[in-house]
């Protein structure tokens, strides 16, 4: 069926149409795994494919065994999550994340479904989240708990992008923008843990994924996560969640996205094409973003207009 070392069109097409036997598919994947040309061809086929509805036909046995890989101390030494000092504040009356009573929320179907354009994938991520919590030491878990929200009257906790983690988050976009793919891959090896953006109710939280088109949201304190489509393609770097249903995310190239229902996202206009590295917010209308060069812009109308920080403007003038 697979004559010659490289895959011919008949084989590639049968693979794309899921017409290969299991043994043939294994052989094809084994070849394509190490053949850049064949990988490029299948990638081109995927890009040239007309849009189709998602159909998760079947699940490979191996896909559920990832949680068995232990996080060794040696690996922890090279996994680097840098957190800016001063943001590791815990609510004084908050219990540890694992024991927080989660407010009951409607449980979605455990099946993999698409609802309103969102991808719901709870069971696999639940395994992932649970296994990470089981295997990580409390010290290793600590960096994941740094973005607690401030009291409601105060701005939500700022979650600036940790320096090494920002390159990791931006690795995907660097690749997409034509930068060295090796650097993107290397960045992803360097810092794979992304801080969680926890709302004023710790049950509701988000986390940024390597693919900026998606973020993950949990309504049960991180036990399970669901994918949410953000509609952006540039790197996301930081976020703030002043309430369980509101989350602001910012990233490179002046990208600002906002969710006000904990499910859907919209791009908010921002006049500057500057990389945004931090955001603080009090609600869905009021937020302050910080650019990579330290400038601050604020909005009080949900991002319709932005003003530069008047203090900054004042300090910029000599007299």
């Amino acid at each position: 069926m697979i004559p010659g070392p490289c895959l011919d069109a008949e084989t590639l097409a049968a693979w794309a149409d899921d017409r290969l036997t299991a043994a043939e598919r294994d052989a094809v994947e084994a070849h394509a795994a190490d053949c850049v040309r064949c990988q490029a061809v299948v990638a081109a086929m995927v890009r040239a494919e007309p849009p189709a509805e998602f159909a998760p036909a079947w699940w490979r046995r191996g896909s559920t065994l990832g949680w068995l890989v232990p996080l060794t101390a040696a690996a922890a030494a090279v996994i680097w999550v840098v957190v800016s000092p001063g943001t590791n504040r815990r609510p004084q009356d908050a219990a540890p994340a694992e024991t927080i009573a989660v407010a009951p929320t409607p449980s979605p179907s455990p099946q993999m479904t698409i609802a309103n354009g969102e991808l719901v994938a709870r069971s696999d991520n639940a395994l992932d989240a649970l296994s990470a919590r089981k295997q990580a030491t409390p010290e290793q878990n600590a960096p994941l708990m740094k973005t607690e929200a401030a009291p409601p009257a105060a701005p939500a906790a700022v979650v600036p992008a940790p320096e090494p983690a920002r390159p990791a988050v931006s690795a995907d976009r660097m690749a997409a923008s034509g930068a060295l793919r090796g650097q993107a891959f290397g960045n992803s090896l360097r810092a794979d843990l992304v801080p969680e953006i926890v709302s004023s109710n710790p049950a509701s939280r988000w986390r940024i994924t390597p693919d900026p088109a998606f973020v993950q949201h949990s309504a049960d304190g991180g036990a399970t996560w669901e994918m949410q489509r953000t509609t952006v393609t540039t790197t996301l770097a930081a976020g703030a969640s002043p309430s369980p249903s509101v989350c602001w995310l910012v990233g490179s190239g002046g990208v600002v996205v906002l969710s006000t229902d904990a499910r859907t996202w919209r791009r908010v206009s921002f006049s500057e094409n500057a990389d945004l590295v931090a955001v603080s917010a009090t609600d869905a209308s009021t937020a302050t973003v910080t650019t990579a060069d330290g400038r601050k812009f604020s909005t009080s109308d949900g991002g319709a207009t932005w003003d530069r920080d008047p203090l900054q403007e004042f300090s910029a003038t000599p007299f």
């Binding site: 850049v36 990988q39 490029a40 998760p56 490979r60 994938a121 991520n125 997409a176």
Partner: peptide, 20 residues
Amino acid sequence: YAQELTLAQTGRLLREHEAT
């Protein structure tokens, strides 16, 4: 990483959910 497919595209190719 090398072919710069998205999670969704990679998932379609491998018959996996993109979360997987």
